[in-house]
């Protein structure tokens, strides 16, 4: 008997992603990727630019669908889900942290962090409490009423992490979360992610910086659309 705990959170089987290039041509970004991500893991996906790591991250994050192959989320095949069904999974199961354009411009930090709950139907009575709790967990509860364009790059990433946490997702996907930051701020962000993993959160981080990847417990290297190494990492 298989226990839920043993079932991978995300499974990719034979994932091929092709992008149309002109009329009859296409570019194949992923050539048959197999990958399992388990609950509680801290995974770093590395690779040079153009390696297909962003494409992989988009599929892991249910932002994009594969051209061929199957993707399972908590055991369900979501390869043929509609745009709205995928939106629901992104809302409830996945928290995103992007490199650029993380926050809605010119509105408060509070409203930014609150927004996923508006789409997820969380009652108003719960919302403010949850926003404050999430902001506190990344150490910037005092910035709740600041406009999103009036805070520093490091703070923006913290707000993005708070927003990613707000729906209690199964996994946090961070796409080059430190790509825009100086080394001190980068270190702080990656420490927050590491701490969240220690609290039991599943974290996937996409990065091209080895020193960032070194914080993860598992390192996956992708080159030319193929996984070339998948190793356990003891930080």
């Amino acid at each position: 008997m298989i226990r839920i705990k043993d079932m991978p959170l995300i499974s990719l089987r034979g994932i091929i992603k092709k992008y149309p290039m002109g009329k009859n041509d296409f570019y194949e970004a992923l050539h048959g990727v197999d990958l399992d991500i388990n609950v509680g893991e801290f995974v770093a996906i590395t690779g040079p630019s153009g390696s297909g790591k962003s494409t992989l991250m988009h599929i892991l994050g249910a932002l994009d669908t594969p051209t061929e192959g199957s993707q399972f989320f908590k055991g369900k095949n979501i390869s043929s889900y509609s745009e709205d069904e995928l939106a629901d999974i992104r809302n409830k199961e996945i928290g995103f942290v992007f490199q650029f354009f993380n926050l809605l411009p010119k509105i408060t930090v509070f409203k930014n962090v609150e927004r996923p709950m508006l789409y997820g139907g969380i009652p108003p009575s719960e919302r403010s409490q949850r926003v404050i709790r999430a902001l506190s967990s990344v150490g910037i509860a005092d910035k709740a009423n600041n406009l999103s364009n009036h805070i520093s790059g490091g703070q923006i990433q913290r707000v993005a992490i708070a927003r990613a946490l707000i729906m209690n997702p199964s996994v946090i996907l961070a796409d080059e979360p430190t790509g825009n930051l100086d080394s001190k701020a980068s270190l702080e962000i990656v420490k927050i992610l590491s701490d969240l993993n220690k609290q039991g959160h599943t974290i996937i981080i996409i990065t091209h910086e080895e020193e960032i990847a070194d914080f993860a417990k598992r390192k996956i290297k992708i080159i030319d659309g193929k996984i070339i190494s998948d190793v356990k990492n003891e930080p």
Partner: peptide, 16 residues
Amino acid sequence: TKEIGLLKSIGAKRKD
């Protein structure tokens, strides 16, 4: 457009 993409990534559906 990017804002719409961000909203969709955090769970906005078409009707939203």
